[in-house]
Amino acid sequence: MLDDLDKRLLNLVQTRLPVAPEPYRELARELGIAEEEVIARLRRLIEKRVIRRLGAIFDSRKVGYKGTLCAFKVPPERIAEVAAEVNRHPGVTHNYLRDHEYNMWFTVLAGSEAGLNKIVEEIKERTGINEYLLLPAINIFKIRVNFDLA
């Protein structure tokens, strides 16, 4: 369970980690605790997987990567097997089952358009799924991943 101090720390580090020589000391000062306490708590939150990544969260497009959202129509009895093939690719970062006939929704990222097509083609070929949607983004209005823990 998260105590109040964990929540205050998470609220703080979600939005901004100082880009400074001693970032944890600055957080500690703001929270009124010791630097060692900040580091120990962050380590615990990472181990408990409350924090997925600490530090830089990249914009895949600005890094030069290409991506698409894919929706596959997977027969219910084949979900585990198809998911294993899809998830095997490091470029597949998110994969959700959703309550629709297009039931498997995943995102693919690759360093180039050709690389992206290669992954998608490989997934299609190896799973034999032939009903699918390829839905690349053409405009991003919002990406926000902060949640208020108060």
């Binding site: 980690l17 924090i51 969260i57 914009d59 600005k62 990406i143």
Partner: peptide, 16 residues
């Protein structure tokens, strides 16, 4: 340059 979208912690919201 926007290459780093956010410098902070990515938190699993399901746990929250």
């Amino acid at each position: 340059r926007g290459i780093i979208r956010r410098f902070g912690a990515a938190v699993r919201h399901q746990d929250l």
